[in-house]
Structure formats: structure tokens, C-alpha cells
């Protein structure tokens, strides 16, 4: 690991300034992803700016019903919070389906959004990878693709975003609050992560020096009736093969409102807008759920090692919607 300077940010503006002044500096959250990467040689910053003591550690309900989650709120706290458990159960479930207790005690909301892919070639500096070293090639194509994308990939990169939390936030229409050198901006979560295209090295639209300060959740009544279902090889402490975050509001057999996002299948949390469109206003029947799933997955392109994901995701989505419809 390359030696680095460690410093604690005094305040948000100073943290931003520190990065603006140094192109090789990075923010440090819980460190559970960044420090791994430093140890593996995937990242080699010369300066890490610890932002965990900045005062973004609260979960607040705003007057208009929105909920504001501070960037430094730890994953374990967020999952356990009463507001989240009652108003956005899918988010709480997604967090608890991710990582381990120790990791969630350290991992921050911002860090979780910003975590990088678990693609085995990305994490192994002895193999080519366009995301780690643009232009070197994508080793996953033609290699081990069990945990790779079936939606929205490019010939340059087929990696997936590993976060469970972000999948739920995507379904919940969350917005990311960001402080940059020229002030604050809000980015819808669905636009926060990118598809790889020909720039797989860029995971998100965040610019160097921009600091995440919070994530806002809209009031969204449908979210109270939601779940997160994650399919994985090991029953706990494993990344998703596929996952589904879904919220459903059924009135008199008709779907009044619905939110769906997928994890483990794309370079970003995959908001299933086509499926949502089909379902809104239709009957809550297994046939409609299947039709919605098939429509959304019509664009799926798999690799030899992950073709199973299409069926697995379809089945998981249908089962999740049936569970929500049944319990309504």
C-alpha cells in the first residue's frame, strides 16, 4: 500500500477545498471499501480526508414529509431507525441484507452509494480492467461473469453496482445532496450512478471534490408497503446475484401505485420504469406481474456465465409482487 497523508476535515467547505486542491486526494467514510482498495492497490490516493466527523449524522423528518438522511449516518443506524423501518421498510431490509454487522457499523450512507464494483478483475491489479485502467481491456468478458450485468452493459465494461441500499433508494426516488466548490446541488438517485458506455472508469456523475452531505427521501406513501428481496449464493454476507426492491399499492384489485428497482444486474441500480408503467392501473394478477417482468427484461443481454439471471430476476420480481399483493 502506498503511504498516504491522513487528515480530518474541519468542516464541509474545507473538505471540499482539500480535494479541489489535490487531484489525488479522496474522502474517507467508514473506509470499508476505500481502504480495501488501497490495500489491494486498486486505489492509491496520496491524501485521505476523513469526513466522518462532519455533522451529517442525523436522520430528520422535514415539514413536508421528506426524510433527510445525513451522509455520515452509519448503515446500521439507518436500518434500525423507526422512520425508515415504518415508512420505507424496503430500505431497512436492503441495508440489513447487505454486508455484516461490523461493516454496517462502519459504512456510511455516502460511502455506500460510492462503493465500487466487486468485479473480481477490477479488484485484482494483475488482470486488465477498463474501469481500473482505462483502455486495458475488460477481463470479465469471456471470463467469470456470475456477478455481472445483464442490463445496460457496454462492450467496455459489464460490471454491476454492488450496493443494496442504493437499489432501494432508487426505487424510492431519493435525491443525493451534494456540496461542491460552487455550492450545493441535488441529484436524483436514478441519475447518480452511470451506465458504463465508453467511460467505465466513471461510476457516478459526481465530480472530484464534490461532497455528499445527505440523501433525501420523498414522502411517498406507497413505500410503506414495500420489500427488498435479495437472491444470493450464500444465505448471508454475500452480494446479490439479483435483487428486487418493490413497493405496491393495490386498491380494489387495481394497482394504484408501484415502485420497482433491481440490483445485481446493471452498472447502476436499475429502476424498472417499463415494468412500473405496465403495472400502474392494471389488475394485480400474476399474469400482469409476469408481463411486466418480461417487458422490462426484454432488453436483457447476458454472458455465458450469467444467463440464469434473466429467469432468476423474473421469478424473483413476480414472487415479490405477489407477496406484496397478497399481503395487501
Amino acid at each position: 500500500m502506498k503511504p498516504f497523508v491522513y487528515e480530518r476535515a474541519r468542516d464541509a467547505a474545507q473538505a471540499v477545498a482539500a480535494l479541489v486542491a489535490d487531484p489525488d486526494a479522496v474522502f474517507l467514510g467508514g473506509g470499508t471499501n476505500l481502504v480495501d482498495h488501497m490495500r489491494l492497490g486498486v486505489a492509491s490516493p496520496d491524501r485521505v480526508v476523513d469526513v466522518t466527523r462532519l455533522p451529517f449524522d442525523r436522520i430528520e423528518q422535514l415539514a413536508d414529509g421528506r426524510v433527510c438522511i445525513g451522509a455520515n449516518v452509519r448503515n446500521s443506524e439507518l436500518a434500525a431507525h423507526r422512520l425508515i423501518r415504518t415508512r420505507y421498510p424496503m430500505l431497512s431490509q436492503a441495508l440489513l441484507a447487505g454486508a455484516s454487522g461490523q461493516l454496517r457499523n462502519m459504512a456510511t450512507t455516502a460511502g455506500n452509494l460510492m462503493q465500487r464494483t466487486r468485479c473480481v478483475y477490477f479488484q485484482n491489479v494483475t488482470t486488465p480492467c477498463n474501469k481500473r485502467q482505462p483502455g486495458s481491456g475488460c477481463s470479465a468478458i469471456g471470463g467469470y461473469t456470475r456477478y455481472h450485468a445483464i442490463l445496460g452493459a457496454s462492450e467496455h465494461c459489464i460490471a454491476v453496482h454492488p450496493s443494496d441500499m442504493a437499489v432501494a433508494m432508487s426505487a424510492l426516488d431519493a435525491r443525493v445532496v451534494v456540496l461542491g466548490p460552487s455550492g450545493e446541488r441535488r441529484i436524483p438517485l436514478v441519475d447518480f450512478h452511470r451506465l458504463p458506455g465508453d467511460e467505465p472508469e466513471r461510476d457516478t456523475v459526481l465530480r472530484h471534490g464534490e461532497l455528499i452531505t445527505a440523501v433525501e427521501l420523498p414522502a411517498l406513501p406507497v413505500a410503506a408497503h414495500s420489500l427488498y428481496r435479495k437472491v444470493r449464493d450464500r444465505r448471508s454476507f454475500a452480494f446479490a446475484l439479483v435483487s428486487v426492491a418493490a413497493a405496491l399499492d393495490v386498491r380494489g384489485g387495481t394497482i394504484a401505485d408501484v415502485r420497482i428497482a433491481f440490483g445485481g444486474v446493471a452498472h447502476k441500480p436499475w429502476r424498472a420504469t417499463r415494468a412500473e408503467e405496465i403495472l400502474r392501473g392494471t389488475d394485480a394478477t400474476p399474469e400482469q406481474f409476469e408481463r411486466a417482468a418480461d417487458t422490462e427484461l426484454a432488453a436483457a443481454r447476458s454472458q455465458p456465465g450469467n444467463a440464469f439471471k434473466v429467469k432468476m430476476l423474473r421469478n424473483t420480481l413476480v414472487a415479490a409482487l405477489q407477496e406484496l399483493a397478497g399481503a395487501a
Binding site: 470499508t32 461490523q102 461493516l103
Partner: peptide, 10 residues
Amino acid sequence: VHSCVLPVEA
């Protein structure tokens, strides 16, 4: 928490 990924200064 894990002590293996915690820089001592943190």
C-alpha cells in the same frame, strides 16, 4: 468493527 481496515489514525 473490523480493526483490519481501520487506519490507526482514524
